[in-house]
Design a protein around this nucleic acid. Structure first.
Lengths: 256, 256
DNA sequence: ATGGTAGTATTGTCCGACAATACTGCAACC
DNA sequence: GGTTGCAGTATTGTCGGACAATACTACCAT
């Protein structure tokens, strides 16, 4: 016989409220840009106490479905923005001890395709946006230079005109950030090599040469791997460790 | 001169509390599996009211950093689980009106690579897990059959032994779910074609033939596209519309 | 050891309160 | 006319406390 009783789950009220609000948003009754009613009003309508409403609001807020625009009091319904969503994924991957190798491997797979699509679908606007990201190339400030590398990929994905790709890529960029800083810090020729590769990719995209864009991007990503190795970053290590190590390289090399 | 005053942001207490707790978790002071102190105790330690603590907890909870194990009272620190994280991304992409075409394109890019890696890194366990997913293939229940298709890809990614890939793939599977149901509902030969392709991929993975695995997977994904077209799913349409239409075609047309 | 039982701890929800601040309308002023 | 000042209201952030339901615990009886 099958089990006669399954664990019946009673949701607390705050979760039901959150679910109800989420449903209103996903089904479109509440649209991005709409203002939510005041907490007391919501409490009255849903028949629960304001505290309960507030707990539910925090839930939606952290999911990016609600935000308060600067200096406003009422909450506004909003589409989760890309960075916020990605940072949740980033945190999750960090806690799951994702390794540099895994992230790198995924980039190997995504980026060349992104470059290819960018070359095929470029528009004057996306190309100039891409060009604009080169301004900070080879920047003296290490953090700035690392940020520029990520920015380049973001602009590339924007040119590829695929939101799903852009969002898939974002956590990778965030995760690689700290390792990238270390790479640029430690490997002297990194700045120029990165800039040179970016220029090659940019040129290929500009003239719509998809094959070249892909090829150069492949090389570019492979080059990152070489850089990581040169910088002494253990690819098998979880990202967190690789990043943290870059902050205290001296202490690590000193024995004990 | 530069602006003398930047908007100074004062965070409400509940967010500071959330940030403090998050920091403890990411830095490792609180490890997955640890139990959080009681709310009153936290309130005492942090010097705020219990309501404030509770709002912060909801924030972490919805981020997947805290969970309560069934029938327990204290919260437990936990690693965000893959499905939960992905569902946030899924919701975001839905709200951003991601199209079937975008999702499909991203799968085109990821899955063949996943298949290739799976063939290279397979172990007896992952292969048998992959085989096990075939049990539900060609299932009469449409929803079940669609779920099986997603399950197959999950097992494939597991065989590829890359957590980042698995997680990147998950939102795509969730997004495609509803369209997939529709596809299988409408296109009679879909079940057998899907099963056949899966068998081909599985065989290639089993014998470690990376090239074949990739090729068959590419064909498989291309076949999905054909299926979508046959099923009359407009690839340019946002996912929500494509899926929603299949779930409640009657009610939608009656709406007001 | 096993099983029952009473007491304690903890959460979920409620009520109410109050200060700080954003919004509104109106009067006053250049 | 447009700007400024101001009073009044609405709304949030935070607090204090309360209570029922239930998980946990320690103890007692068998």
């Amino acid at each position: 016989m099958t089990e006669p009783f399954v664990p019946l789950k009673l949701e607390p009220a705050y979760r039901k409220v959150a679910a109800a609000l989420t449903a209103r948003i996903t089904e479109g009754t509440l649209q991005p840009g709409d203002r939510l009613p005041a907490e007391l009003e919501l409490a009255r309508q849903l028949g629960v106490h304001r505290s309960t409403i507030r707990e539910a609001l925090r839930e939606l807020e952290s999911g990016g479905l609600l935000r308060r625009e600067r200096g406003s009091k009422l909450m506004m319904v909003t589409r989760p923005d890309r960075l916020a969503i990605a940072s949740g994924v980033t945190r999750a991957l960090t806690l799951h001890q994702a390794t540099v190798a895994e992230v790198w491997e995924t980039m190997t797979l995504i980026e060349p395709e992104v470059a290819e699509l960018a070359a095929l679908r470029r528009t004057p606007e996306t190309v100039s946006a891409l060009t604009a990201t080169m301004a900070d190339a080879e920047h003296a400030d290490t953090a700035r230079a690392a940020a520029q590398a990520a920015e380049f990929f973001r602009a590339l994905a924007a040119a590829a005109a695929n939101n799903v790709l852009s969002l898939s890529q974002e956590p990778l960029l965030q995760l690689l950030g700290s390792s990238l800083v270390r790479l640029i810090e430690v490997v002297p020729q990194a700045r120029s090599r990165i800039a040179a590769a970016q220029r090659r990719i940019l040129e290929a995209v500009e003239r719509g040469d998809a094959a070249a864009a892909r090829t150069w991007c492949e090389k570019h990503i492979r080059d990152y791997r070489r850089g990581f190795e040169l910088a002494g970053i253990d690819l098998g290590l979880p990202i967190a460790a690789a990043g943290g190590a870059s902050l205290t390289p001296k202490t690590r090399s000193r024995k004990r």
